[in-house]
Structures are given as C-alpha cells and as structure tokens.
Write a protein that binds this DNA or RNA. Structure first.
Lengths: 169, 169
DNA sequence: GTAAGTGCAAAACCTTTGCACGTCG
DNA sequence: CGACGTGCAAAGGTTTTGCACTTAC
C-alpha cells in the first residue's frame, strides 16, 4: 500500500526527484523500501521548518498511521546520511532537523531567544574561515557550526516570515 | 573546616583574586559560602582543561569528601553565571566546562574527531561577524558559538600540548 | 533560630535497544 | 522463505528534583 506514485507525484515540486535519490540510497546500502520509511521521508523532506523527532513522528503518522517512534529514530540517521536532511543541534535536550532542499552553501543558525525560532542564514565566508583555523592546527574540517543566540533589538518587531525560515546573506 | 586561607593562598596564582570574586558573587545573590561550594569552585576554576560534571565531582571530592553529585550540578550554574567558568556544549550527551581565567576575546572550539580533545581558539573576528549577521535581522547577539570538528591532516602528527588546551589566533 | 544548602535516591527526559512478529524481495 | 524492518516497552545516561537533615549567618 501507499504506492510509489504518491511520492512520485510530488517529487517534482521542489525540482529534484529526491524520492528517487532516497530509493537509490536505500538500494545502495541494502536497505529496504518500506511504507514507514516512505512516510517518514515525505514528512521530513517536505517540511518547511525545523522539526524534532517528535514533530516528525506526528507528521509521518498523518501519512501512515503505523509509523512508530522507534522507526522514526531509526530512519533519521538514514535521512541525514543520504544528505536529504540536516541535523541541527542548538544545545537543547533534543535535536532539530531541517530539510536539506536547496542547501548548497554553509549555513549558520540564528536562534531567537524570545520565540525559539531557528533561522538558517547563509554564511559562505565561514567555510573558508573554518578551513583556515583548522589548517593552522594542521587539521582538516569534518563539520562546522556557527550559532548565534539573539533577541530582537529594542523597538524592532520580529517580522513574520510565513513558510520561509531561510534567509540569504 | 577548610579555612578561607587555603583558597586565599592560591588565589594569586593566576593573578586575580577570583576566590573573592566568587565570594562577592555569592554575597550579592544572598547565597551562602559553604565548604562544598568552595571545593567545587577550586576544582573548577583551577582546572587546566575542559571537564564534565562527573570530572568535577571527582576533583571536588579530592578536596572535600562530602561533595555530592547533586551539589556539583547545583553549583555549576552559579559558577557560569558568575563568569568564572564557561559552559561548552559540543553536542554530546553531556556538557563540558572550562575555567574562564584569562578569557577575554571570543573563542571557537576545534574538536579533534580522533582524540576528542577540545581546543579553544581565539576568534575575535567572529564577535564582529555575529553582530553583523544579527543586526541584519534586527537582532542583538546574546551568545554565540563556532565549533569546528576536524581531524589531523594526513601525515601530520597531533602535537602534544601539555597543560595548555588554549591556542592563540 | 531560621532560611538556605546538602546528600541521597528517585524521577525526568530524549534516545536507544531487545525481542517477537511482520514483510520486502 | 529468509533476512531485514517494525512496534512495543523497557533500558540507558545525564541532569533535575523532593525530602529530611545539616549548617551558615
């Protein structure tokens, strides 16, 4: 049940057939295509915002009732390793994730202390800077994160950014 | 027991009387000076490396046997709020802390994936960069972190840095 | 003397894991 | 049909908390 055509139908919405990317990744790693993985993939990849494992469980269950928490936790590493989503650790007790659609350059996170909103900001310069810092220590960058906790300046209203938690730099 | 003179005797080792700073902070916040807090302060502030809560418990107990895990966890926020130590979250299940002696400029952390060592690196430029990024969103920086996971470049031996996990930039 | 601090052990919380059953290929 | 995947519930591991006792001031 939940034939491929469902996912295939929406695969071109974002311009790339990411569903096929995912299926290929599964095949390449001798992993099976299950209805649960498909539901979790869809819920995650087409999310417009940062989400937690619990969020993802809820969304995936709206697609396929049989999805369990354990399977969500077991599928998240597959999605991150396939590059379809990105893990975002902002130092809370739980992790966030974001769909990696369109992501090309390095992103920093601005975390609003008042609203808890996470804003992904292009910071291409950081890629160079990180490499330089690491090189000075004779090391190669594996990964990197820049996070800025901030709050609205006095008198400035936080703008509503409907369905777009990404900004350009 | 454990008279003030013990702490007072070592207070000038690092050039500032941080013990008095701590006592003042406690007084200013209507908190009491206890032997456990003194032991934890000493174990934390005079640490030469990043340490966990568990590490701190062990070290503090070498100074005062009566220190409990609960008190360590209850004292850590006091130490960070007083500015004597700094919390370092590198995304593991547990937090690290570093003594904040000498710390003036913004530091980034380079985390060696091979050795798990954390190296504090001066990155004063980041202070400006973070402010600029936040300002563009109409926000003010509350705090910031730049972390670089890296591993030794091929053929490069990681240098031993005895009693100094801080580097200059 | 009284309010604050402490130790102990249990609770909390997200995430992982063991096991028996289900299902993809 | 056999190996991989899943759901459930219990376990894990760090940090927090309730409670009765102790201690600073």
């Amino acid at each position: 049940m939940t034939e491929d055509k469902n996912a295939d139908a929406m695969m071109d919405v974002e311009g790339g057939d990411s569903w096929n990317t995912f299926k290929s990744f599964l095949a390449a790693n001798d992993l099976r295509v299950t209805s649960q993985r498909q539901a979790i993939f869809r819920a995650a990849y087409y999310s417009d915002d940062h989400f937690t494992a619990e969020d993802l469980l809820t969304k995936a269950r709206q697609i396929d009732r049989s999805v369990s928490r354990a399977t969500v936790y077991r599928t998240l590493p597959i999605l991150t390793e396939s590059g379809l989503i990105k893990e975002v650790d902002i130092g809370k007790d739980y992790l966030f994730y974001v769909s990696h659609r369109n992501a090309t350059t390095f992103k920093a996170q601005v975390i609003c202390k008042d609203t808890d909103r996470i804003i992904e900001v292009d910071a291409p310069f950081m890629e160079w800077y990180g490499k330089a810092v690491a090189a000075r220590l004779g090391m190669q960058v594996v990964s990197m994160r820049l996070q800025i906790e901030a709050r609205p300046s006095d008198g400035v209203e936080v703008p509503e950014v409907p369905s777009a938690s990404r900004e350009n730099g």
